[in-house]
Amino acid sequence: MPRLTGGKGFPTGDIARISVFAALIAALGLPGTLNLFGNAVPITLQTFGVMLAGTILGSWRAALAVAVLLVLVAAGLPLLAGGRGGLGVFAGASAGYLIGWLPGAAVTGWIVERGGHRPGIVRLVVACVVGGIGVIYLIGLPVQAAVTGVPLGRTALLSATLFLPGDLIKAVLAAIVTKGTQRAYPDAVPAVHRERLRASKEG
């Protein structure tokens, strides 16, 4: 039986997964934001969703899930933590972090994909730390410094103090949740999904 697709050979299952994770990242903004010591960039749970998207969906599907969310935010929907939305959020201090979600999710997924059918917990944590923290900080910190006028070194130190402990906890939790999900649902392993998708197209 031919596999259902959405459009030009794009599996409807992938469309559903991308949509679900875009919605998940948005839902993780519902608890709101936490601003410590008046920092211009709030602490939210949404980076946890970005990490999960990468570890479960893999590189390109995770990037698409984030892209869908960001397009909806740009269109004005209040999907960011604290009910924020609209083009204005991409001109604020947190703009670099939001933009960093897309390559961050892709890099996280790429590292997990290199782990084959059974990526270990260490690889999952490393993927979340490198993609979900490192890549996002790499883009977010310079933009935050430029917007706020605070020197980059001071911005990095402040962000490391305020954000890094919580982000490391998110990385470990994302790895644990992903490992449990992959045991219960093997197709949640990006490499397995990719092989099954290739086999279905060849068949």
Rank of each mutant, 00 (worst) to 15 (best):
K201V: 11
I139K: 09
V177S: 03
V66D: 04
S159Y: 06
H193T: 06
L124S: 01
A199F: 07
L164F: 00
V172H: 13
L173C: 07
P165H: 01
I43F: 15
L36K: 14
G49S: 06
G88S: 05
F90A: 00
P151D: 05
L157T: 03
A95Y: 04
V177C: 06
R84D: 08
Q144P: 00
L69T: 03
P119W: 10
V143C: 05
V73I: 12
G29C: 12
L162F: 13
V122F: 00
G132M: 03
T12D: 06
L138H: 08
G49R: 03
G203H: 11
V50M: 00
A188Y: 15
L124F: 10
P103M: 03
L77C: 10
V126S: 01
K201S: 12
G9H: 14
L45N: 02
Y97M: 03
L36G: 07
L141C: 09
G116I: 05
A171W: 07
P78E: 05
L45I: 01
P142C: 05
V147L: 00
W60G: 07
A127Q: 08
V192F: 14
T12E: 07
L162N: 07
L45C: 04
A75Q: 11
R194Q: 12
P165S: 06
V66K: 02
P151C: 05
D14M: 06
Y137D: 06
L57H: 11
I176G: 09
A146H: 06
G6E: 04
Q144A: 13
H117S: 09
T155A: 12
A74L: 12
V68G: 02
A63M: 15
F10R: 02
K8Q: 05
T148N: 05
A156Y: 12
N39Q: 14
V172E: 08
L173Y: 08
V112R: 15
L36W: 15
R196M: 05
V135Y: 14
P119K: 10
L87C: 09
H117C: 02
P151R: 06
R194K: 13
I139H: 15
G120R: 11
A191F: 11
A91G: 14
L157M: 11
I121Q: 01
G83S: 06
A95W: 08
Y137P: 14
R194N: 07
T55C: 10
D167T: 02
L164M: 02
G88H: 01
M1I: 10
R183Q: 09
L28N: 06
A16C: 11
P78I: 11
L79Q: 07
T178C: 11
I176T: 07
A184K: 12
A81F: 02
L69R: 09
R154E: 13
K8F: 14
T5L: 12
A156H: 05
C128L: 07
L158I: 00
M51S: 08
A146W: 04
T12K: 13
V50G: 03
V147T: 10
G76V: 07
R183F: 10
G116V: 02
G58C: 03
L72S: 04
I139F: 15
I176S: 09
A93G: 08
V20D: 03
R118S: 12
A146P: 06
Q144T: 14
L79Y: 11
G131D: 03
T148A: 05
G32I: 08
L102K: 04
A191P: 00
L87F: 01
G83D: 05
G7Y: 12
G166R: 13
L168Y: 00
